[in-house]
Amino acid sequence: MILAATMAALPSARHLSWLFKALSVLFGADSEALAEDAVLELVERARAGDRAARQRLYRQHVQRVFRTVRGMLRSDAEAEDVTQDAMLTALTSLDRYSPRSGTRFVAWLTTIAVNTTRRRFRRRRPELTATGELPEIADPSDDPAEDIDLARRRAALLQALAELEPREREIVSLRYGSDLNATEIAAQVRMEPANVRKILERARASLGERIEALMKSRGAAA
């Protein structure tokens, strides 16, 4: 309310918000999620060789792909490699994507990312866990307490994920990293949607309990 009043009182604040938005797009974040129709339009334009459309498509999805594969992999470095490979594969094979089959673009892209992750699992032994490295130091922000809190939440989530079964980890990563529904996840992991829902429910409960316990113990230690 205060923000709205300030924006109304200061016409220049509106320009500032546009400036921040433009800067965030310029530096690689496209926070405003597009509707599926708009994504499909971008796909069509990118197929026709429109570089700006391809760039927008990339920025719309890159963070989502990273979040998803990070939940399945051991380190940020691996997630970075997989994200890069998956985005390249997707952007160079847009012709293979068919929305007529009822698949959302994000689900198609996630399939590519998951397959890239699985190839990495096959190549690398022993089995990967979601953690195994110290949490990366976040980029400096204005508020150091926010950085510490983010690092703590991140560490707790990764720790809790590492304790899940690989299949559960994959399913929760697809759910919360890519925001896929049970039917879309079921198609990717070749299971019945009902089973996916059951696994999700179980994994959510165990993740929630574990994260809360970890946050409490880390909070007490700090």
Partner: peptide, 9 residues
């Protein structure tokens, strides 16, 4: 919470 896994800039 999952947003904590986003890549750094």
């Amino acid at each position: 919470l999952w947003s904590a896994l986003e890549p750094t800039s």
